[in-house]
Write a protein that binds this DNA or RNA. Structure first.
Length: 315
DNA sequence: CTAGACGGTATACTTTATCG
DNA sequence: CGATAAAGTATACCGTCTAG
């Protein structure tokens, strides 16, 4: 068996990465889990018991997540074991009752003691090594069950994410509660690095909305992003993802045909960092379809993506 | 007060590798 | 050989922190 070689995490290691998908895979061979919106974190304990934490790119981040290190170190079930865990560091939004990406980013940079209201949690979804044994060849199902056994009565800071059989039901829950999405994993899959597999898929929920493109930012002589406004004229961010050459051509022809302004329309309130940008404003805003992960606290779209430009504007 | 860096996320484009 | 796949590069954005 793989008894002999306890591996060590190192710079060359690439954590298994889920592949983006549009729909949840169907069938008995799949397990479905909540997608926790936070920072990927692997934990490794050496024989001495020292715990180190690493990001997705295998950069050491132990000090940034001291509370997790302490919780792992103090967990009785882990005592004296050489192990490697894979999971996500998250912070729950106490009001919305779901993980908050802005909060975990904030927490990561703050050395100050944790507040009681929103501690960092370590949501564990995989175990690659346990008591010196390499478990990566085990079926995911078995690795997950082992996690449940190990952490059955641990502190609230450490939790094992559930695995569900009914993917559709989970998706319905995700939509109702506005979580980030679902990760689906083959029960029988072993742990393979990066995306060299067809076993883990992520399906992300997104907002779909109509907005107005009021103009575009030119960078290096090229349309870099679109200024987005709500129907009521309030600025809601910029979009660049999803823009293709076709779109750029359409936009510049629209600008040439419909005309542009030097100044933004009316008394538009813009973030100060845009003052230096080279912005071309349309005389007539274009309705566009946009998707995004969510609204940020500042009222702009997080990770907006251009879905469609109206074809009607084309001659 | 501003500019830039950072760490995190993502996609698009370009180059390289691989395969029939 | 050409076509496709993989890999690498570049750029986008958010929210903070740091330097000037």
């Amino acid at each position: 068996m793989s008894r002999l070689s306890p591996f060590q995490l190192g710079p060359a290691f690439a954590p298994m990465a889920p592949i983006s998908a549009e729909i949840i895979p169907q069938g008995e061979e799949w397990l479905h889990q909540l997608k926790w919106d936070g920072i990927r974190l692997l934990a490794e304990a050496s024989d001495s018991g020292a715990v180190e934490l690493y990001t997705r790119k295998m950069e050491k981040r132990t000090s940034a997540f001291e509370s997790i290190q302490r919780a792992l170190f103090a967990c009785p079930a882990l005592q004296g074991s050489h192990y490697v865990l894979d999971g996500e560091a998250i912070v729950m939004d106490p009001v919305l009752n779901r993980p908050s990406f802005p909060l975990i980013l904030k927490r990561q940079r703050t050395t100050r003691a944790l507040t009681e209201r929103a501690p960092v949690l370590y949501v564990i979804f995989d175990i690659l090594q346990w008591r010196g044994q390499d478990l990566r060849q085990l079926p995911y199902e078995a690795r997950h069950q082992l996690l449940l056994d190990i952490f059955q009565d641990c502190t609230a800071e450490l939790l094992v994410t559930d695995a569900f059989q009914d993917g559709e039901a989970l998706w319905t829950w995700v939509e109702a509660n506005e979580w980030e999405g679902v990760v689906s994993k083959r029960r029988q899959s072993c742990y393979l690095e990066d995306k060299q597999h067809r076993d883990w898929y992520k399906i992300k929920k997104s907002l779909q909305l109509r907005a107005l493109a009021a103009g575009y930012i030119v960078r290096d002589g090229r349309i870099a992003s679109l200024m987005l406004l709500q129907q009521d004229g309030i600025y809601i961010g910029r979009v660049s993802i999803g823009m293709k050459e076709q779109h750029r051509e359409l936009l510049s022809s629209w600008a040439a045909k419909g005309g542009t302004n030097e100044q933004p329309p009316q008394s538009l309130l813009l973030p100060s960092e845009l003052n230096k940008e080279n912005i071309v404003w349309f005389k007539q805003p274009i309705p566009v379809e946009v998707s995004a992960l969510e609204w940020t606290a500042a009222g702009v779209l997080r990770h907006p993506k251009l879905v469609a430009l109206p074809v009607g504007s084309n001659a």
